[in-house]
Simulated assay, not measured.
Amino acid sequence: MGTAEMLTAAGVGSGDEVIVPSYATTGAAEAVRSTGARPVFADIDAQSLCLDPVAVLRALSPRTTAIVPVGLFGHPADLTSFHTLAEARQLVVVEHIEQAPSDAVAVRRRREHAAYLDARLTGVTTPGVAPGVEHSYHSYVVRVPGNGRPDRDAFARALRARGVRCRVPVQTPVHRTPAYRCEVRLPETERAVDDCLALPMAEGMSRRELRRMVSVCNGLGGLLPMAA
């Protein structure tokens, strides 16, 4: 059963509000809208990049009936906090799943790759992992320090020019897309859109490929001028 079907089965419909992250694909918002309810965007946690329970608490209104967290890049959403919050207010929690589960061997290899990169990358902020959480690293998302998007984009161009196939994981937050545009203050979401970059993280990568990526990233020093 998909997210929309689970929301409908829980009685969510027209006139209701459902809290979703904006730093994600449009999938959760689309599922909410298909029930007739209105998606309300809340901010993310700066470390996990997933929906922040504190921000969700601030976004609640008398019309809120559900919360739809989304695990991102392999970091699971804080479901324990959301269920605690929901139980006190008779809300529904429906996790939106965007990535198919990986087999144990693939996850173990990605975690090994991530540990190697965590220990060696400089000039970028490596992925944050909440205490007690097991990250499966569907994507290895770093943050490029500096002046946001200009420095991140310059860094990305320089990496690609040197053969590192990086990508911007979320180009535009959902609340700024034409279909869902609204005025809402989401500072951590906006920062993540501007400075996050996904480095290659395939379970089949060799140690030589990882060493090469570390060498290129560290050689750039983390920051580049726009002309790079």
Results as ranks from 00 to 15, higher is better:
residue 16 D to S: 02
residue 17 E to Y: 00
residue 18 V to S: 01
residue 18 V to L: 01
residue 18 V to A: 00
residue 18 V to Y: 00
residue 19 I to M: 08
residue 19 I to T: 04
residue 20 V to Y: 00
residue 20 V to C: 00
residue 20 V to D: 01
residue 20 V to A: 00
residue 21 P to L: 00
residue 22 S to M: 02
residue 23 Y to C: 04
residue 23 Y to V: 03
residue 23 Y to R: 06
residue 23 Y to I: 10
residue 24 A to F: 05
residue 24 A to G: 14
residue 27 G to N: 10
residue 28 A to C: 02
residue 28 A to S: 03
residue 29 A to S: 04
residue 29 A to D: 03
residue 30 E to W: 07
residue 30 E to M: 11
residue 30 E to H: 05
residue 33 R to E: 14
residue 33 R to F: 09
residue 34 S to N: 04
residue 34 S to W: 06
residue 35 T to E: 03
residue 36 G to I: 02
residue 36 G to P: 01
residue 37 A to Y: 04
residue 37 A to H: 05
residue 37 A to M: 05
residue 38 R to L: 09
residue 38 R to K: 15
residue 40 V to M: 11
residue 41 F to R: 07
residue 41 F to N: 06
residue 41 F to D: 07
residue 43 D to P: 08
residue 43 D to K: 08
residue 43 D to S: 05
residue 43 D to Q: 11
residue 44 I to F: 03
residue 44 I to G: 01
residue 45 D to R: 08
residue 45 D to E: 13
residue 45 D to F: 05
residue 45 D to N: 15
residue 45 D to I: 06
residue 46 A to W: 06
residue 47 Q to E: 15
residue 48 S to G: 05
residue 49 L to K: 10
residue 49 L to T: 13
residue 49 L to G: 10
residue 50 C to K: 08
residue 52 D to K: 04
residue 53 P to K: 02
residue 53 P to N: 04
residue 53 P to Q: 07
residue 55 A to T: 09
residue 56 V to L: 00
residue 56 V to G: 00
residue 56 V to H: 00
residue 56 V to W: 01
residue 57 L to N: 14
residue 57 L to S: 15
residue 57 L to W: 10
residue 58 R to L: 14
residue 58 R to I: 04
residue 58 R to T: 13
residue 59 A to K: 08
residue 60 L to T: 08
residue 61 S to Y: 06
residue 61 S to W: 06
residue 62 P to R: 11
residue 62 P to I: 12
residue 62 P to T: 09
residue 62 P to Y: 10
residue 63 R to M: 13
residue 63 R to F: 14
residue 63 R to V: 11
residue 63 R to I: 09
residue 64 T to N: 14
residue 64 T to V: 08
residue 65 T to C: 14
residue 65 T to K: 15
residue 65 T to W: 05
residue 66 A to V: 09
residue 66 A to S: 12
residue 66 A to L: 11
residue 67 I to F: 13
residue 67 I to H: 14
residue 67 I to V: 15
residue 67 I to Y: 12
residue 68 V to Q: 12
residue 68 V to S: 13
residue 68 V to G: 13
residue 69 P to L: 09
residue 69 P to W: 04
residue 70 V to K: 12
residue 70 V to N: 11
residue 71 G to Q: 07
residue 71 G to V: 06
residue 71 G to M: 06
residue 71 G to W: 07
